[in-house]
Amino acid sequence: MDKTESIHLLMVDDEKKFLDTITERLKLKFFEITSATNGEDAIKAAEKGGFDVAVVDLQMPGIDGIKLLEILKKNHQYLEVLILSGHATVSTAVECTKMGAFKVLEKPCPFDDLVEAIKDAYERRLKRKFERDQARMQKLEALAMGQSPLGILKEMAKMEDEGK
């Protein structure tokens, strides 16, 4: 990976030392990173947009990882979320996966495994966006056959609202 195709990461963990160190290591791999030590700050950061993947701890004060996962998946359809936690159990892993987490990793996790998981999550994001764009294009092509320019614009706005 080089700087021109860097993945934008949102790292969330209440262990500040861990967060700072892993952020430094990931930066060396050319990821672009914003870090947050709690759920509230992570939500604010995500609202600014531009993130490809979020890496989220489970046990945090205030908004915990499960709730944060729910909010991020609800508000950011194409953001992939990885769970990285020392508190992961089989049942929480199943729960997180059902809620849309891309993968659940257990701390301490080999760094290379984390990097691979982030890249895989990014690929899935690209694939899902590509499929969405393709479906939109097909729909627009079909619309263009029998609609006025204003009608096409209205349909496009409707599709945008529906997040299609």
Partner: peptide
């Protein structure tokens, strides 16, 4: 959980 956090910090710092 606390010990895992400690090991994770040591592991990442060593890395």
């Amino acid at each position: 959980h606390e010990l895992k956090n400690i090991l994770a910090i040591i592991s990442e710092t060593s890395g």
